[in-house]
């Protein structure tokens, strides 16, 4: 039987290094299978997050050969002949081995003003496909945080920017036909959408193929422009009073 050589990062906040493990290769094996095999047979204290093993839950995010990927969706036969390096997500503080502290994402999520339908309006809502079709894409997000990890604003600049995941979430709320809140101010001053320079790495790594930049972030940036940077709309609002806009 063929063997796979894995170099897995082992260590914690105080430091660490890659360690080589060898496991038997099976047909269709994914990196997560190999890592769990290592855990079951050679290193029971190897820390790794995983749940569904079918790319539905977004738990097993890591960096495989330097690329942010879901381990359960990364086939080992893709690397034939090459070494497989598995490391933790680099944007977040390391806890141990492949596990990082992603609490930042939950803190920011908590700050986003929640879905707010018109007061007194009760379901069933009448909502047409036409009005909600673009929202389905945002709702596909499995919160793997790979986009947050690859975003250079968070990864390299350590800015308090909310990151692509939360912008996708805000997009899903802002464009919901039954939502009544306007989050433009929040986007500009708290989520810091202006920090995004639309360089699209988030879109490239998204395992759900959400067009994060084109379909979520840019439409939100345009909405922020409507309210804060568009001189004509500003004058219009001065004259007409602040009541009519898209938000």
């Amino acid at each position: 039987m063929a063997e796979i050589a894995l170099k897995i990062f082992r260590g914690d906040a105080s430091g660490g290094a890659e360690k080589e493990y060898r496991v038997e290769a099976t047909p269709g094996m994914v990196v997560l299978d190999a890592v769990l095999r290592v855990q079951a047979t050679q290193a029971s204290d190897l820390a790794v997050r995983w749940n569904c093993k079918a790319a539905h839950c977004g738990s097993c995010s890591a960096e495989v050969n330097g690329k942010p990927r879901l381990m359960c969706k990364t086939r080992t036969d893709e690397f034939q002949g090459k070494e497989i390096h598995v490391g933790p997500m680099r944007a977040f503080k390391l806890i141990k081995d492949l596990v990082t502290d992603v609490s930042f994402n939950y803190k920011t999520a908590r700050m986003i003003p929640a879905f707010t339908p018109p007061a007194g309006e009760k379901a069933p809502f009448t909502m047409y496909e036409k009005d909600v079709e673009r929202l389905y894409e945002y709702h596909k997000c499995i919160e793997c945080f790979l986009c947050q990890n690859v975003c250079h604003v968070i990864r390299d600049h350590k800015a308090p920017f909310f990151g692509p995941r939360q912008l996708v979430r805000i997009a899903s709320l802002e464009m919901h036909p039954k939502d009544t809140l306007d989050r433009a101010q929040f986007l500009k001053d708290t989520a810091l959408i202006g920090y995004c320079n639309i360089t699209k790495c988030c879109t490239e790594v998204c395992p759900e193929h959400i067009h994060i930049t084109d379909n979520a972030i840019i439409p939100l940036k345009e909405r922020v422009v409507d309210e804060f940077y568009d001189p004509v709309q500003w004058i219009w609002r001065k004259i007409m009073g602040r009541n009519s806009n898209g938000g």
């Binding site: 390299d156 600049h157 350590k158 800015a159 202006g194 920090y195 995004c196 320079n197």
Partner: peptide
Amino acid sequence: GEKYSGET
């Protein structure tokens, strides 16, 4: 490094 303000 640190000095980054994006499009703000």
